[in-house]
Structures are given as structure tokens and as C-alpha cells.
Amino acid sequence: MDVASFLQQCGIGITSGVFLGLMAVGYTLVYGTVGLIHFAHGDVVMLGGCLALAILSFLVPLPVAPVTGCLAVILAALCSGLFCGCLNVCIDRFVYRPLRDAPPLSPLVSAIGVSFVLMNVGLVWIGPTDRAFPEIFLASTRSVGGISFLMADLLVLAISVPPLLCLYILLRQTRFGRSLRSIAAITRATARSGEAGKLIGTTFFISGFLGGVASVAAGIHATTINYQMGHQMGLYALTAAVLGGIGSVPGAIVGGLVVGLLRAISVAVLGPRWAMASVFLVLIVFLAFRPQGIYGKSKTRAGQR
């Protein structure tokens, strides 16, 4: 593989890494506040993709001018973000909140149950086969210095990066961000107080919103969606969150980029059918040497269990 095609694969990897990072942030935020792996997140994202598909096929029935197309995509991303955010808040309110002081594995089973229900809804909504996502740029490419890249991938970056910047500002500069960063220290008992409840709700909304944006980005990147894409992407995003150190937001983004790059490179070198195995192998080997992930805090020896 020569340098140019390597860089091209890196470009693809970074693009997919950015939206995987968006999803991974969703996992990591929820884990950081309620200490739960939100297994249904991938399927929430999948439903967001279904909604975006419906909106885009309504708005962009025929090939249109790129500018209009881009606006439609941004509108779809906002809508599906709001939808996923509200869905996530509802899931938290009706499924997870009653289980705040149940044994730790019970919410996990509920999360799996929610995931099954959502996957079934997606199956009934868009059917069992792949559905084509409306293509705005019809696979047009630009080439800079011998490296060609898809215009669609630029669009993916354009809709995924701003939410990440907003999240950064939100977490660093606002009172909400400070409370959110401190809530990791809050024990399960205090998570039932009103203030913490609101904070948890907001966290679920943000994680859902980012997931909704990620679903549109993923649809544009892959050009198709299906009802199992949430499961697939969810596994990758969860890997990214764990690789970065679950609970850490920068870790999730870095993890997403690493997983995206790994996947793109292994697709290019070994072929697509080995992509998932190589990503997980790297994860297992990495965790064997650094059990807390890239950004995770190392525990003391006694607590390391």
C-alpha cells in the first residue's frame, strides 16, 4: 500500500472515527453519571437514522443542488438529535430510574430489553433489508495532493464536529458541565435527589442528541442503513468508549478515532470481513496491558480487584 492510499484510508477512518466518537461520548456520559452501560444506545441511534431517512426522503426526493441538500441534512440531523434525546430521556425516566437502587446487573438486563424492543420497532419501521440513504453528492470526489476524498465525508465531518465543540464548551465553561463532571463522585444513594435527577435527565438528553447526529453521519458515510446498524455501531462505539477509558469524554473521542482508523486500515489490509475481529483483538491486548483504558484513572492496588 502506497502513501497516498494509506492517507486516503486514514481519511475514511477519521471520518468514521468522528461519528463513532459521538456515539461513544453517549455511552461514556451515561456511564459517568449512573454507572450503567446503556446497551440500548445503539438502537436509539438506529431509530434516529430511520427518522432521518424518513425526513430526507420527504425533503430530498430527487437529486437537488448541494446547498439545499446540505441544509436538509442539517435539519434532519437536528430533528433526529432531538428525537433521540427525548427517546433517551423517556428510557431513563420509565426504565432505568425505578431501578436506581436495584442490584447492579438488573438495569443492564432492562437496557438489553429496551434494545430488543427498539430493534423490533426499527425492523417494523424500515423492514429487514438495507435501505439506501439519500445521497446528496452522488459519490463526487475532490482530490488534494493526490489524496481523493468523498464530498460526503466532508459533510459527515461538518455535521459531527460542531456538536463535539459545543459539548466541549458545555462541559468546560458552564455550571452544568462542572456539576456533570463532579457527579461521577456522587454515590448511588444521592443520585435520587431532585437536582441529581435533573442532571441525569440532561445527560441522557445530550447523549441521545449526539447519537442522533451520529446516526445521520453514519447514514451518509455508509450510504445505507438497516435495523441492525445500531447493534453493529453500538459495539464499535462501546469499544471506543472502553478503549478511551469509560467515563472520560476526551477518552471516548480519542477512542472513537482510534477505532475508526483501526477499522479503516484493517479493511484495507485484511479485507472487510476481518475488521471487527481485528478491532476487538487490539482492544483485548490493549486492556491486558492497560486495564483502565487510555484516559481512565488508575486505581490503587487494593481497589484494583
Binding site: 426504565v95 425505578p98 431501578l99 436495584a102 442490584p103 438488573s106 430489553g113 424492543v117 423490533n120 420497532v121
Partner: peptide
Amino acid sequence: LALVGIALIVVMRFRPV
């Protein structure tokens, strides 16, 4: 799939152990 999912949620809601 949805039936199984709802069953899981309901069991965990009323019998978390």
C-alpha cells in the same frame, strides 16, 4: 423480539433480584 424485551423490562421492574 419486542415481546422478549418487554418481558425483561417488566421482570426487572417488579423483581429486580
